[in-house]
């Protein structure tokens, strides 16, 4: 990411006053050079768009080939209700732009699966965020971003469940460490650090030793995501209702948990029920907020990233981060 020495205008200082005091003027300068590509303007996509546009990045391009449909009426606040049938990216621009006139907001409507690598290597973006995409698509996008030095995030919400994945490839950042000298004397020191991230492919193929501690400690959300991916692979859609999809979900749960040698109770019925139906707004807000804060950290190269997969468990309101996959050549 390009660093800039240009000063913030008085206008920017006023608008971003609160956040500058939290993350400093250098971070704010880096934010305003960042160019983002946001793929998938679902409810979660709208939350990420809102938070990141408010933060004061340089530009954001919305990319989506799907129309706005009724199930988004529970979460997609950037699109006016009456715009049923319009392209989700284009329909989101107006409200997103109003959030912060200093950010360039635009929309494109290409079919994601048909985009070639050239599209991403056009030097138009620093970060790519893929929301609600199919597993093979996420793999492909991540691989392209890794090859071309773009930071990559992917995530989705289904019902009350949500997750996101982070791949910053090799990421250099600064962090503040606190040294306690005496009881009441703490000295802060800023140090440089580097972190390597596994690819999405490596993360989804993570294997666990049977009966291992890591497997035992995994949040049920991990298996829920596996179930969701598999469901979509088979049906080319998300689960819509219990009447229609319970049997399929139950079957997938048994199959997937058996593979990991886990009892059925590991993913209780109540969790499976929470996966069904449209994205729930408050859950988009929760997952979107954590994703956005990680984006801000990644762009500003400040503070240690949470490596690398975040899950939100709607039964106990717990948000956990699991490090999945392995880094090649290490």
């Amino acid at each position: 990411m390009v660093e800039t020495s240009t000063q913030l205008t008085a206008d920017e200082e006023k608008l971003y006053d609160r956040q500058i005091r939290l993350w400093g003027i250098e971070s704010q300068k880096r934010l305003r050079t960042a160019r983002l590509l946001l793929i998938g303007l679902s409810g979660l996509g709208a939350e990420v768009a809102k938070n990141i546009v408010l933060s004061g990045i340089k530009s954001i391009t919305f990319l989506d080939d799907k129309p706005y449909t009724k199930e988004l009426a529970f979460s997609q606040f950037l699109i006016p209700l009456e715009k049923i049938g319009e392209n989700r990216a284009e329909a989101s621009v107006e409200r997103a732009q109003i959030l912060n006139p200093l950010v360039e907001v635009s929309a494109e409507t290409h079919k994601i699966a048909e985009l070639t690598e050239d599209y991403f290597t056009s030097a138009r973006w620093d970060v790519v965020i893929a929301i609600g995409q199919e597993e093979p698509q996420v793999k492909r996008l991540d691989a392209i971003c890794r090859r071309n030095g773009l930071k990559f995030f992917a995530g989705e919400v289904s019902g009350m469940f949500g997750y996101f994945f982070t791949d910053l490839n090799t990421h250099s950042y600064t962090k503040t460490i606190k040294n306690r000298l005496k009881k009441d004397e703490v000295v802060e020191e800023t140090v440089k650090s580097e972190m390597k991230f596994p690819s999405f492919e490596s993360a989804v193929n993570q294997e666990f030793e049977k009966g291992s501690r890591k497997l035992r400690n995994l949040d049920p959300s991990y298996f829920a995501l596996k179930i969701l991916f598999k469901f979509r692979e088979e049906k080319s859609r998300n689960p819509v209702s219990l009447e229609e999809d319970w049997d399929a979900l139950d079957l997938l749960r048994n199959r997937i948990l058996a593979k990991y040698d886990q009892p059925k109770e590991r993913v209780p019925d109540e969790f499976l029920e929470a996966l069904v139906g449209p994205e729930m707004g408050p859950v988009c807000a929760i997952v979107g907020s954590i994703l956005s804060q990680e984006l801000i950290k990644a762009i500003s190269c400040q503070d240690e990233p949470h490596k690398n997969t975040f899950f939100f468990n709607p039964l106990n309101n717990k948000g956990t981060v699991v490090n999945l996959g392995t880094v090649a050549d290490q």
Binding site: R18, N51, A285, I286, S289, S292, I296, N317
Partner: peptide
């Protein structure tokens, strides 16, 4: 220390309030 509010934390907390 000066601890101002930011958009992301507010959004997360507001989401959790509704789940509650």
């Amino acid at each position: 220390n000066i601890i101002p509010a930011i958009a992301t934390s507010n959004a997360c907390i507001a989401g959790l309030i509704v789940l509650f």
